[in-house]
Design a protein around this nucleic acid. Structure first.
Lengths: 247, 247
DNA sequence: CGAGCACTTGATCGCTTTCAATAGCTGTGG
DNA sequence: CCACAGCTATTGAAAGCGATCAAGTGCTCG
């Protein structure tokens, strides 16, 4: 099953992630060069995009859908170490093999570049290298924020933290107003949430039920979430209201 | 009390971190430019180098000693999110305020550059920007490795993971042979270890005692550690012997 | 209708935390 | 020289939180 294209596959100007991806600061000439070496790939939910330890033949950007970076221990314990949203960059110029599994959490479309030509382009166009540095620094901040969540927060605070990150991202993507209830669909299964939070899926389920019982969130079905009071949720997450998560 | 200089403070060629720091790939001309804007600062153990939220007026490299990045919640829970060793870079070009506290864990000497001139230099010398990207990607990998430790490992595995990281770094710095026992001094208090591992200091103490009782490690005093069998320690850490931590 | 999947809920277990007491060490001052 | 404060670290006992084991619900799809 192929994911149907919602946009023009050749013209970067009309690309939905044009203003946030690694190509954000490129001028028209640079964009043309990128257009010359890019190609699209689609992945179904559940598919592994890149296996840990494999050769990485391409790098690229998530155009739509959600992918995750996961590490697995020999006995099967797994930890999600990153959530890749539209415009996020996949791959590591200058390294041969992938350090983690990259999995499609939902159906995913990626804009790919073969690694070698992209590395060459990076060396010749400072705009791309500069943007990639900024994005990597942002990811590093996000990873470190998450270390606090994993190391020091309670199960309830972990769930609230995850919900507030998803809510915040949704708000920033759809440019919604800050006030009023926030509504979104959870893009993750309970198990994926558990792997991201360092919990079991049972604990995730229990804490979501508890937050619902305490009216911190409203649930319709399993996935559709309404947050009546964002400040309340942030409080439950253990963050002061203006503290900034980056994802 | 000022830390005594162990090296020539003007000449980068003789700098002990010359081959690993952000300036590693610079040629002679670029190095001269850096020498023009650099200055050294010393910090005593326990001192805070940068406060979270403050303006960052400088960036720089750790020359000697160990610094830590820590986050603190309002109720006092703290999580160390990074360990800065000699040659590691401090600061973030392109961002105004510091996202975390930077604290001197031991006495620290830093090679500093005022932020603005450094940013200018970064734009004009691709070698620096390129090296900083590589270092940032390495740090990102290290942060993600640590997420697995924080999210999924037991207290015993966490301690073993920390010890194996310190052992490995010591080995890489002193270029020791791979085989035979590894000996080093712990540069962290039990409390600092707890903050890094997301544990309490009592649990750290108990697990160190347990590893000692089981002859995974030998202890002289509180801080002097001998590791008779590195493979055994890595096994206790839950890593396969060739798995690679980056710090 | 039954299989499969995602999720919920209950009961119990055990690891880590919490609370508390103590030891060892260093430096200070009577 | 000894007493004592202050700090780091160890160890014990008890409590609590999340994991584990287990059963059951609701939904979709063939």
């Amino acid at each position: 099953m192929t994911v149907k294209a919602q946009f023009d596959h050749t013209n970067c100007e009309g690309c939905p992630i044009r203003h946030r991806a690694v190509c954000a600061h490129c001028d028209t000439d640079e964009l043309e060069e990128l257009e010359g070496i890019k190609y699209y790939r689609s992945f179904e939910a559940g598919q592994t995009i890149i296996w840990s330890g494999d050769q990485m033949s391409f790098v690229g950007s998530v155009v739509s859908g959600i992918a995750s970076l996961t590490q697995t221990m020999e006995d099967g314990r797994t930890q999600m170490v990153g959530l890749l949203l539209p415009s996020d960059f996949v791959g590591r110029p200058g390294r041969e093999t992938a350090p983690y599994d990259v999995q499609a959490t939902t159906d995913v479309v990626m804009c790919c570049f073969r690694k070698k030509p992209f590395e060459d382009l990076m060396n010749s166009t400072p705009h791309i290298a500069h943007r990639l540095l900024q994005m990597t620094l942002d990811e590093l901040d996000a990873a470190r924020e998450w270390m606090l969540v994993l190391g020091r927060k309670t199960a309830r605070e972990k769930i609230a933290s995850l919900l507030s990150i998803i809510a915040r991202r949704d708000a920033s993507v759809s440019q919604k107003a800050q006030s009023g209830p926030i509504v979104f669909d959870l893009p993750l299964t309970r198990e994926a949430m558990a792997d991201y939070l360092g919990l079991t899926l049972e604990t995730v389920s229990r804490q979501i039920s508890a937050l619902k019982r305490d009216s911190v969130i409203l649930l319709e079905g399993k996935r559709h979430v309404t947050i009546p009071d964002m400040a309340r949720l942030m409080d439950e997450a253990g963050d002061d209201s203006d503290g900034g998560f980056l994802v």
